[in-house]
Nucleic acid binder design. Structure first.
Length: 502
RNA sequence: GGUCCUGUGGCCGAGUGGCUAGGCAGAGCUCUGCAAAAGCUUCCACAGCGGUUCGAAUCCGCUCGGGACCUCCA
């Protein structure tokens, strides 16, 4: 069985077949670094990180491109041209690039904490002004864009007319029909420049107050909203590449416009597989500036937001995201996050124990054939479920069934020889592969230098001695004082002791 | 208004025609000096009303509710 992914373009699951194996190209729309990343941003980056990791595991040589939008977009098209970055820069008395740097750093920090692998290339819009201008020139030359007052607009209607005949009308990705769009598009100010309401800007003339501006054949200005992704994906992945990902809210108009621009320039549909993750909601509502319910990632990690009852570790967030399917909405609540926190802890402790302490004799047959078969099946399904459009939720469900088995062996509720040694080896290997390498989950325990562990071992030894002479006052004191510090001692069945922090 | 998605037990969340995930919370039991942890058992579902079918959470229709996009947005 091979990887199947849901292609928004065809509205069905399709077997993933790269254009030039073993190479695979993947483009994911990155953040606008004029502000801090929030919980909602974590979703696509975690989702596509898992896809990236899985493709790598499957032996593909993946080039993963995720852009940084640092040129600023309009707050609202047609209104007073307000470049987000320049506006904020004035308010905060910062250079635009200083602001960009600040939020880029914060974004990378958050990505790192979420254990997202860095992409192969993280191109910036400002670093590709030349490519964008060249692309716009090409579109004008082909007759699909027009210049007016120093701005350039894409002629959507002409594109739709011409490309409908080729089976690729404008709206093909989102299922919109241009004629209906024209009817329903809201009236915005300053629309008069455009020939049609549905036309979109490729280049905007910069009003004097704009700080970010570049010289172009049409005067000083800045690129439109969508052209950077077309320019950069073409440059680094080619005219036709494998996967294009992003949030559902980008499907229209952003990705639709990308398709139109790239198709005019390169005469090809840019990407074969279009993938869209769904939104994270808070009390059923999408997170968004307009709803005033945005929780920044740094606030989530530190717990400093009125909606938060406590801080949440980045791994809890990652696990929370993986517990649902990426195409469904995921509703945030403290209760849900707390459930994830506990579940993750349970999973990681069992996995850690299995990987480090579960040793089996060579060539040992299974004493419990039924259980052995069940474990085999659960483990084999890791791949099967992941192949099925990244169903991480089902994989995790299987893992939890295995956690019970692992803990039973650990606590000697199950004999050590219940499973065949081969099965145990397979289980350990696949758990490590999926939990750590593919899902990117790691123990929440922060790395220490071993000193803490030494101290704890000392306390454990003292407590053991106290217990040995039935001095429960001392042993309970040690345990109670430690729990007050957030360190929990656990007496094991075999007389040993373990601890968990946090 | 247009386009589309969705409604699963206290909470989160899988599941597309029969085999009724999983996590957290609750209850009971086992283990334990006592805890914790762990294991076992257990309670609580498929918005409503019709229809198709031998059989539906799963397909169809209607009703009600929620949401997304159409505007920066993951």
């Amino acid at each position: 069985m091979s990887l199947k992914i849901y292609n928004s373009l065809t509205r069905q699951k399709e077997t993933f077949t790269p254009i030039n194996p073993p190479y695979a190209g993947m483009y994911v729309c990155g953040p606008t670094v004029s502000g801090e990343s929030h919980l909602g941003h974590a979703r696509p980056y975690v989702t596509f990180d898992v896809l990236y990791r899985y493709l790598l595991h499957n032996g593909y040589k993946v080039r993963y491109v995720r852009n940084l939008t640092d040129a600023g977009h309009f707050e609202e098209e047609g209104r007073e041209a307000e470049d987000k970055i320049s506006k904020k820069a004035v308010l905060e008395k910062l250079e635009p690039m200083e602001l960009v740097q600040k939020y880029t750093n914060l974004y990378r920090w958050a990505m790192d904490r979420l254990n997202n692998l860095p992409p192969s290339i993280e191109p910036t819009a400002t670093g590709h002004i030349v490519e964008q201008i060249e692309m716009i020139k090409k579109i004008i030359a082909d007759g699909y864009a027009y210049e007016i007052n120093g701005s350039v607009y894409f002629d959507v209607e002409k594109y739709n007319t011409d490309y409908s005949q080729k089976g690729q009308p404008y709206g093909i990705l989102s299922g919109r029909v241009l004629e209906e769009q024209i009817e329903s598009t809201r009236d915005l100010d300053n629309q008069d420049e455009k020939r049609n309401k549905s036309d979109f800007a490729l280049w905007k003339n910069a009003p004097p107050e704009h700080i970010m501006r570049w010289q172009s054949p049409w005067g000083e200005g800045f690129p439109g909203w969508h052209i950077e992704c077309s320019a950069m994906s073409t440059k680094y992945l080619g005219e036709e590449f494998d996967i294009h990902g992003g949030g559902m809210d980008l499907q229209f108009p952003h990705h639709e416009c990308e398709i139109a621009q790239s198709t005019v320039c390169n005469h090809k549909m840019p990407a074969r597989y279009w993938m869209h993750n769904n939104m994270i909601t808070i009390n059923g509502r999408k997170m968004g500036k307009s709803y005033n319910n945005v929780i920044k990632l740094s606030e989530l990690f530190s717990g400093s937001h009125p909606l938060l009852e406590q801080p949440y570790h980045p791994m809890t967030i990652r696990f929370f995201i993986l517990q649902s399917h990426y195409r469904g909405t995921l509703d945030f609540s403290n209760e849900a996050l707390q459930a994830s926190e506990k579940a993750l802890k349970r999973l990681m402790e069992a996995v850690e124990w299995a990987l480090t302490n579960w040793v089996v004799k060579e060539a040992q047959p299974a004493a419990d054939k039924t259980l052995d078969g069940k474990v085999q099946k659960l483990v084999h399904e890791f791949k099967e479920f992941t192949d099925d459009d990244l169903n991480t939720a089902k994989v995790l469900a299987n893992m939890f069934e295995l956690v019970s088995v692992i803990n039973s062996v650990k606590d000697k509720h199950l004999p050590a020889n219940a499973l065949a040694s081969e099965t145990v080896m397979l289980l350990k290997k696949q758990l490590k592969l999926f939990v750590e390498d593919i899902f990117g989950l790691k123990s929440e325990r922060e790395g220490d230098d071993g000193k803490l562990e030494g101290v704890l071992q000392l306390l454990i030894d003292i407590r053991k001695e106290a217990k040995g002479r039935k001095d429960f006052v001392t042993s309970d004191k040690i345990r109670n004082e430690l729990i007050a510090l957030g360190i929990q001692l656990k007496d094991e069945k075999d007389g040993g002791m373990s601890y968990t922090i946090g």
